[in-house]
């Protein structure tokens, strides 16, 4: 059995401290590659980073040397545009060399603006168009159910993305089949591309919606690592799929980006980049 979980530390505080350091590295690296590529989606990279770090550096079992290991936990980034954070996370976890991050969105780089499973180890399915991750995750969880396998499936969706109907088709199937190995984390930063979700097509009450579809629902501060870890590490058994509504801040960690829709796909100038890096180091 390969080294399967990267968790460090015994106590929750120790585990959280380790994850927090990885999250800091991911934020800085994500912002750097967006800055260098002059394109990307930094707002959504930064809102999802703490959840990504909690998954890859505490909760999930995987083997970067054997990315398609059958017993691995699966992760799907349904908001496929957050590749700044995803690629930084996968590189830090050892799926491909960190130096390669400098090729992000360069001509012929395998690090496309949206992830390709056939080119990048650790990617489970090609996302980009929204509303695609959930049905695929449900299919994986059904395969695990048929095989009575113990691997788990995690998925991050954006919140605005939940306006896509395909998510609810999949949510209905997951609830009906009681897919307890499935954990959805909604990156609830309350902003979509151009405006607030509630000003566009409102999602609230989101918890009631998922409960009505047969899911267990918990709400958490999506940047509180100590609160996230016990929800993600499987220590609380479920007999239904679990929806974690992670209340997050778009652009988290950089003062001038936080909670501003314009940073959905904004790119910092040199001065802003320097200030952002200082804030992330603080």
């Amino acid at each position: 059995m390969p080294e399967s979980r990267p968790r460090r530390g015994q106590t929750l505080a120790e585990r959280a401290a380790f994850v927090r350091e990885q999250a800091r590295w991911i934020r800085k690296r994500a912002l750097r590659i967006v800055f260098e590529a002059r394109q990307g989606h930094p707002g959504g990279d930064l809102s999802a980073t703490d959840v990504l770090a909690a998954l890859y550096f505490d909760a999930m079992r995987y083997d970067p040397a054997d990315p398609r290991w059958q017993a691995r936990d699966r992760f799907i980034l349904s908001k496929g545009h957050a590749t700044g954070a995803l690629y930084s996370t996968l590189a830090l976890a050892g799926f491909f060399p960190q130096e390669e991050l400098t090729t992000y969105m360069q001509p012929l780089s395998r690090l496309n603006g949206h992830p390709n499973r056939n080119k990048i180890p650790g990617v489970e399915t090609n996302t980009g168009p929204l509303g695609h991750g959930m049905p695929v995750a449900v299919g994986i969880a059904i395969a695990a159910q048929i095989d009575k396998a113990d691997y788990r499936t995690f998925i991050i969706t954006g919140d605005g993305e939940l306006q896509e109907g395909s998510n609810w088709e999949a949510a209905m199937t997951a609830g009906h089949r009681k897919l307890a190995s499935l954990t959805l984390i909604v990156d609830r930063n309350r902003l979509q591309q151009g405006a607030g979700t509630e000003d566009t097509v409102g999602l609230d009450p989101l918890d009631d919606k998922f409960r009505a579809f047969g899911w267990d629902v918990v709400e958490v501060d999506g940047h509180d690592i100590e609160a996230l870890l016990p929800l993600l590490d499987g220590s609380t058994p479920h007999d239904r799929p679990l929806c974690i509504i992670a209340n997050t801040v778009k652009g988290k960690g950089i003062s001038f980006m936080e909670n501003k829709a314009s940073w959905h796909h904004g790119v910092p100038n040199a001065e802003q980049y320097e200030q952002a890096m200082k804030e992330l180091d603080a």
């Binding site: 699966r74 049905p135 695929v136 299919g139 969880a141 395969a143 109907g165 999949a170």
Partner: peptide
């Protein structure tokens, strides 16, 4: 156990198929 009826939901059906393939089916 190997007949998975996802109901009247074709987008979900095709995605579920891709997920099952990911799980080795």
């Amino acid at each position: 156990e190997r007949l998975i009826n996802v109901g009247i939901a074709e987008q979900n059906m095709v995605g579920v198929g891709a997920g099952l393939a990911n799980g080795g089916k």
